[in-house]
Amino acid sequence: MPKQHPSSLHNRALDLLAEGRSVKDVAAELHLSRTTVYRWRHAYAHMTAHQFGSRRTPSELSAARARIAELESELRAHRRLAELLNDVVPPKGGSRPSR
């Protein structure tokens, strides 16, 4: 049966990995096997991907939402401009219809 580690150790390992530390360094510092740290990292990535859709930080998500809002606003402006141009400039009447 696998050895049970306290959740505080598990959380500490994940925090160190999130800081950019290597699996090798984290395993050495916390006196764990590399396999254990790899498994914990993989399980966390799998859990968060299914739970939140991706491993994004709150700041990345808020920046993405702001960018989406900006692009949607720009798209509305372009659509409105296209409507206005259709009212003012009629399409060419003498051109051949497309196939």
Rank of each mutant, 00 (worst) to 15 (best):
Q4C: 04
P91S: 08
R80E: 10
A13E: 01
R34P: 12
S8Y: 14
E70Y: 04
L84E: 15
L14N: 01
R41Y: 01
G20W: 04
S62P: 00
A18S: 12
I68Q: 04
E19I: 02
P6F: 03
H78I: 06
V37D: 09
G20E: 02
P90G: 02
A49W: 02
L84I: 04
K3I: 14
R34T: 14
A27W: 13
V23L: 07
Y38N: 13
R79H: 07
R67W: 06
E74G: 06
E83H: 05
H42D: 07
T48R: 15
Q4V: 10
A28L: 11
S22P: 04
S8W: 14
S73N: 02
L61Q: 02
H78S: 13
A64K: 05
S22K: 08
I68D: 13
A18I: 04
Y44A: 09
A27P: 06
D25A: 08
P58R: 14
R55T: 05
S8M: 14
E19F: 02
L16Y: 00
Q4H: 08
R12L: 11
A66R: 02
P58I: 04
R41P: 01
S62Q: 14
L17G: 11
L32M: 14
H10V: 11
F52K: 07
R96E: 13
A77M: 15
S8H: 15
A63K: 04
G93Y: 06
Y38R: 13
R79F: 08
N86S: 12
P97C: 10
N86C: 05
T35W: 07
R80G: 07
H42P: 00
H10W: 02
G20P: 05
M47D: 10
S54K: 12
P2T: 05
A66M: 08
H5Y: 15
P90A: 12
R21C: 10
W40A: 01
V26W: 00
S54C: 04
I68W: 00
T35L: 14
H5A: 02
S8I: 15
R21Q: 13
A82I: 12
L30V: 07
V37M: 13
P97T: 14
A64Y: 05
H31T: 09
L30A: 01
S73H: 07
R79M: 03
S62D: 08
D25C: 10
H78L: 13
R12C: 11
A82K: 09
D25S: 15
F52V: 07
V89S: 07
M47F: 06
I68P: 00
P90W: 08
P91W: 03
E29M: 01
L9R: 12
R79K: 05
A28V: 08
L81W: 11
A18R: 10
H5M: 05
L16N: 03
A18H: 10
